[in-house]
Amino acid sequence: MKALRILRRSVRDSFKSIFRNLPLSMASIICITITLILVSLSLFLSYNVRQITKTLEHELTVVVYLKKDVTENQKKEIENDLKTMDNIDEYRIKSKEEFKSEMQKESEDLATAFESLEGDNPLLDSIIVKVKDVSDLKETAEKLRKYDFVQSAEYGEGMVENIIGIFDAISIGTAGIVIALVVVTSFLISNTIKITIFSRKTQIEIKRLVGASNVAIKLPFVFEGFILGIFGSILPILLSIYGYTILYNETHGYLFTRIITLVPPFPFVFIVSFILVAIGSIVGMIGSWLSVRKHLKI
C-alpha cells in the first residue's frame, strides 16, 4: 500500500512538475520531437532502401543453357537436383520454342530472321534459376556448370558482384545512419532532461532534507522523463503514419520506376511508431534516472 501510494504520488507529481515548469518541459518535448522526426526519416529511408535492394537482388538470376542434344531424362535429373539444392529459391524451365516466340514478339527483325530458318530453331532450352542468397550466385552457377549437358550458366559475372557489393554497402550505411541517429537522439534527449533536472537541484536537495528516500526522489523525475518522451514522440508518430501513408498512396507504392517499390505502410508505420515511442520514453526515463542520481551524491 505504502509503495503504491508513493508510486501514485510520483505520477501525480511528475504531471504537476511538467505543467509547473512548462517552458522547460516544452523545450524538452520540442527537442525530443525534432530528434525523433530525424530518427523516423532515417528508419523509413533505411527500411525502404533494404526493401529496394532486396527486390533488385531478387531479380538477379542464373540462366542455365542446356546443350542442344539434351535428353528429357537429363532435364529431369537437373530439375530433381535443383529441388534439393539449399540456395535455390525457385526455377523455371524455358523451352527453346518459348524463347523463340518471345523473341519474335519482341522484334520484327528477329521474327523475319526466324522465318528465314524455315522452322529450324537454333536456340537452346534453358532454366532460369532464382537463388535465396545472391552472394552465393557465383557458387550456384559454378555448380550448375558441372553438368555435361549444360552448355553454360550465366549470371552477369562482374557486374552482379559489383551490384551486390553496392547493395551491401548501402544496407550497412543506412543501418549505420539509424544507429548513429539513435545514439545522438539518446544523448540529446538525456541532455535536455539533465538541464530540466539541474534547474530543480534545490527541489531535490529539499526532498532529501525532509527525509525522502533516493527512490522516492527519483521516481517523479523518471515518470517525468517517460511522459516527456511520450509527448515528444506524438508528432513524429503522426507524421510517420500520415506522411508515409500519403507518400505511398500518391506514388502508388513505386518510386520513379516499378523496380523501386516502397514498403507497404501497414503494419510498417506502426512498427516505426513503436520504435519512436520506445526510444523517446526509455531514453527519457534513463536520462532522468542518471541525472537525478548525480544530484543525490554528497
Partner: peptide, 10 residues
C-alpha cells in the same frame, strides 16, 4: 505535506 508524502503516509 510533501515531507509526509515522501514517507508514503495516507
Amino acid at each position: 505535506a510533501f515531507a509526509l508524502e515522501t514517507l508514503g503516509l495516507p
